[in-house]
């Protein structure tokens, strides 16, 4: 993650520099806009992070591994989808969990549905999403992506077994 962050920051730094060379005034205006949006967003973002912290405590890694591990069957698949939808675990934590699941014998389908709901469906972030997209669109997006994630889990699980 640190490497990614460095690359990302460097790319942004270069864009910023190029932008400054071309038009100082415009760049400063852009920065001002960016900072303004960021400051406005900070409280809801922090609230989400607090919620995630509490959720991660309530649903510890060991429990995830236990309930969606090997031989957990269709129920495990479904639990993985639900946990993945509710939580929003940062990649640095969720990928190691996924790797642990695989090493403990969980199926790729379960891991795929867990990781995909993790990424595509956000119950914790729903209030924030509603602020942006409105109730209807936010709920629909999450519902459709939940179905899509189930399909992704099933198909990936099937293909990984087949291949």
């Amino acid at each position: 993650m640190v490497n990614n962050a460095i690359i990302f920051a460097v790319v942004t730094g270069i864009s910023l520099l190029v932008s400054l060379i071309f038009d100082r005034k415009k760049t400063l205006l852009g920065l001002k806009k960016g900072v303004k949006i960021f400051i406005g967003m900070l409280p809801p973002f922090l609230n989400i992070l607090i919620l995630i912290g509490i959720l991660l405590y309530l649903i510890p890694q060991e429990a995830i591994v236990k309930y969606v591990g090997p031989n957990s069957g269709a129920l495990g698949f479904f639990i993985a989808a639900i946990i993945g939808s509710i939580t929003l675990i940062p990649g640095i934590i969720s990928y190691p969990i996924a790797a642990t699941l695989i090493s403990k014998g969980a199926s790729y389908g379960v891991v795929a549905v867990f990781m995909t709901t993790q990424m595509l469906v956000g119950v914790v972030t729903l209030p924030l999403e509603i602020k942006y997209f409105g109730k209807k669109a936010a709920l629909l997006r999450n519902a459709l992506n939940f179905v899509a994630a189930l399909m992704i889990g099933l198909v990936v699980g099937w293909l990984m077994r087949l291949w």
Binding site: A9, L16, S19, T27, G30, K33, I37, F38
Partner: peptide, 13 residues
């Protein structure tokens, strides 16, 4: 924060 810098630049350019 980096995303917001990019969003700001995107907006003006």
């Amino acid at each position: 924060p980096v995303i917001f810098i990019l969003v700001g630049l995107f907006d003006v350019w």
